[in-house]
Amino acid sequence: MKVVIATGGTGGHIFLGKTIGDMLKSKGVEVVYITTSKGLGTQLLSTERTYVYRFYGITCIRDVVKALSVFVPTFIHILRIYKVEYPSLVIGTGSYPSFVPILVAVTLSIPTVMYEVDTVPGRVTKLLCRYIDKMLLAFPEARDRLGVGEVIGIPLRRSILKLHRNCKLTDKPHILVMGGSQGAKRLTQLGIKLAQSLPEYDFTIITGTRIWDKVSDVRLPNLQLIPFTTDMASIYSNTQLVIARAGALSLAEFSYLGIPAILIPFPYATQDHQYYNALHFNEGAIILRESEATVDKLMDAIRYLLADVSTYQQKC
């Protein structure tokens, strides 16, 4: 059996696709990936058997024109891939790189599955959900909004499932600041200021590659800066608290590992879906809008979440 997984865009969608692919490969299924040239797909799937095509996410009228200009050649390109690979199933992870591969599969009557990982379904999911064979959802809120689909939760990476995290609060707790796969300038700036203001804590900040050159020279004894990593298990293993955006996959990992979180949803996420993701995981977390996230408020939140050692370790 051969399965095509269409994924791309942000790390959350790609890691989801790769997690599904790894699960299938462990069962003896042959897996082929399709991703776009834009985004992190080519980087994160570099060790996998992957086809790359050109397409655009749509955030404005100019993007509509770009997407339409490449739609027909992209459709033909994906059609040729399927004629070579003859997949038994095509799986999409809900992001815009899933759109054309799923559409071509529907046209060819190849069985299809769409996996929507956010509480608020994206445009691609809304557009295609009535035509695919199986709609899978991570959250009941998504089913309420979409009207169709089976809720099955979020599959986690094997490295996360196997992780045994250190739940003891040390004399110098470790705080992780991360802005998702593409980083976040605002969270990085706040993290550096927190490290300056709270020398009694150790900080690791995953900055993202976009702003790495602007912050890589910062030196503090209690601060480690990392541009990007795929080995989150190693970092989580000694993390006592995380300050992060609210991508669904990251939230599922925090919840599974029992890491308390201060969540600052990306304010420009489509349909504000990160905020609604955060609401689903609000137990053990403090949610702040980016406009509310000052250094003083974050310091208060850190001290509140780590104040009661016994309660913290019971939740871990």
Rank of each mutant, 00 (worst) to 15 (best):
1 M>E: 10
3 V>M: 03
5 I>P: 05
6 A>I: 08
12 G>V: 06
14 I>W: 02
18 K>R: 15
18 K>H: 04
21 G>L: 01
30 E>I: 08
34 I>E: 00
39 G>N: 00
40 L>P: 02
43 Q>V: 08
45 L>Y: 07
45 L>Q: 00
47 T>L: 10
57 G>Y: 09
62 R>W: 06
62 R>G: 13
66 K>H: 14
66 K>P: 02
68 L>N: 03
69 S>Q: 07
71 F>P: 04
74 T>W: 07
77 H>L: 04
81 I>E: 00
82 Y>S: 01
83 K>R: 15
89 L>S: 02
96 Y>L: 03
97 P>E: 11
99 F>V: 02
102 I>E: 11
103 L>G: 01
107 T>W: 13
108 L>V: 04
108 L>C: 03
109 S>W: 14
112 T>Q: 09
113 V>Y: 07
116 E>M: 11
120 V>W: 04
125 T>E: 06
127 L>S: 14
129 C>A: 15
132 I>L: 12
135 M>N: 11
135 M>S: 02
135 M>C: 13
141 E>N: 04
143 R>D: 07
146 L>E: 12
150 E>C: 05
151 V>M: 14
151 V>S: 11
159 S>H: 08
159 S>Q: 15
159 S>M: 01
163 L>T: 07
163 L>N: 10
168 K>L: 12
169 L>M: 12
170 T>C: 06
172 K>Y: 05
173 P>K: 08
177 V>K: 02
178 M>N: 02
183 G>L: 08
186 R>P: 00
187 L>E: 01
188 T>E: 03
188 T>M: 03
194 L>H: 07
195 A>E: 11
204 T>N: 10
206 I>E: 01
208 G>H: 08
210 R>V: 09
210 R>S: 14
214 K>G: 00
214 K>L: 12
225 L>R: 12
226 I>R: 12
233 A>C: 04
236 Y>V: 01
237 S>G: 05
237 S>C: 10
239 T>K: 14
239 T>Y: 13
241 L>W: 11
249 L>H: 04
257 L>S: 13
259 I>T: 06
262 I>Q: 09
269 A>L: 03
280 H>E: 14
281 F>K: 00
281 F>C: 00
282 N>G: 00
283 E>N: 11
285 A>I: 02
291 S>L: 10
292 E>C: 05
294 T>R: 13
295 V>L: 10
297 K>Q: 10
301 A>C: 13
303 R>S: 09
310 S>P: 00
310 S>C: 02
312 Y>D: 03
312 Y>V: 06
314 Q>F: 06
315 K>S: 14
316 C>M: 09
